[in-house]
Design a binder for these strands. Structure first.
Lengths: 234, 234
DNA sequence: CAAACTCAAAAGTACTACTTATTCAAGATG
DNA sequence: CATCTTGAATAAGTAGTACTTTTGAGTTTG
């Protein structure tokens, strides 16, 4: 309870740059600043240390590390960055990550998905197409997220599977910030169906290619909107 | 000191499956088992909790989570898995990750690298080619690691940059376990030079394509060795 | 002026006491 | 007899104190 509060406050402060790298914090000050006990302060510092946001040196204190040293894959850090002023930059970074992973994930899903997963993916693709054509954006988003989530899971690579949340965040963020056309592109829908069909048929190359087309299209869309729309950054 | 010892022992036990998911540990038992104080035990549990290896429930204890829930990108967890009996599987997972990321990283490096980085990459490519043709495997490995490291850094995506260690581990592991031909393939060398040239010239598509060829070649090599060599697993 | 030495500051470790939440079961109530 | 309530036991969470170890910085000494 207290632990989480203090962790969030301190972590967010570091993540969004309020506490610049090199800053030294004395754990006694932290106790005072947050009105927390020694136990809580210590454990929070331990956690930040395992996230590589800080290092502790005796006789010196707790030192804020450089952003390049942080463990950028920690869900908490991602959350703090998305909730902070650097949200657009964070979304861009995550979008690049997803565009790299998903084609590869589609390949392995085609090779490794269970029969049940192949069926569900196909079903999701159809529902996605229906809601997309009906211009029901919120339902479309929901199925889109489920589709990508299932695909990543079916890749049987735990490091890919863990990115479900990230992809969900990117897809949601895109819809919510005018970085997406008012209605889903017909080509995008067709490509999702193509991915589902390729996975269902175990065609690795085809699945990878289709998914690559999807992320490339998304990339180009964003680039186009950014260049024409100018500084759309909240 | 104590903290790290206990963390390593417990973390490794969980990571390599000695403590199966669902196991409940009572923090008092942990103190006893490792001869550590309550403070140390608590902080270790906190750290494992942030790595999502465990959850703590009052009145119950510390529960080992399912592997799919773990934060698989935590450097410590990667280390524990690589040092455990599941090393081959871990290397395979990491290799898939790298094969997904690097082509994309090459693209962005071509778009974003500093002039100095472009120069260094070209220089590294040349040294790589020299040592490769001379069949100096250990020097080749060193330059290979440096090459991929620089490329990931130059992509200016912190999530890509953080994978340097992973790539180094994969490249080293491949050389050290007979999963690599006795001498670097001439085509691989040529492709590295191609990547360097494309990055130097700012040609994103060309860089991405060349790097994709590299990772695909590596993938096929491993697949070939696995299928012909049979159960080469240490 | 440099090297060794001392001191103090701050994190690390240990231990104790108290608080809070949760499970399990006994008992009451319909 | 079933279900709901209440309460006691248990184990994690929080707080606070005392002691140890490391190390940076100033000071002394050759």
């Amino acid at each position: 309870m207290r632990h989480e509060q203090v962790l969030d406050a301190l972590g967010a402060a570091i993540a969004n740059g309020s506490l610049v790298p090199g800053t030294v914090l004395r754990s006694e000050d932290l106790q005072e600043r947050f009105g927390a006990s020694r136990t809580v302060a210590r454990e929070v510092v331990r956690v930040l240390e395992t996230m590589r946001l800080t290092t502790s040196k005796r006789r010196v204190g707790v030192i804020v590390r450089e952003p390049v040293e942080w463990n950028h894959y920690d869900p908490r850090l991602i959350r703090w960055q998305l909730d902070g002023p650097a949200r657009p930059a964070a979304l861009a970074t995550l979008n690049e990550l997803r565009s790299a992973i998903e084609p590869c994930a589609a390949r392995y899903a085609a090779l490794r998905a269970t029969p049940e997963e192949r069926g569900r993916l196909t079903a999701l693709g159809e529902r996605l197409a229906r809601t997309g054509r009906a211009r029901d954006l919120s339902a479309f988003l929901e199925f889109d997220i489920a589709f990508h989530d299932l695909l990543l899971t079916a890749s049987r690579n735990p490091m890919f599977g863990q990115l479900s949340e990230v992809v969900a965040e990117v897809l949601t963020g895109r819809t919510g910030h005018g970085l997406m056309p008012p209605e889903p592109q017909p080509e995008a829908i067709a490509l999702h169906l193509e991915v589902a069909a390729a996975v269902a048929g175990g065609e690795a190359d085809r699945a990878e290619r289709a998914m690559r087309d999807i992320v490339v299209q998304a990339r180009d869309e964003i680039a186009a909107l950014v260049s024409e729309g100018g500084s759309e950054v909240e």
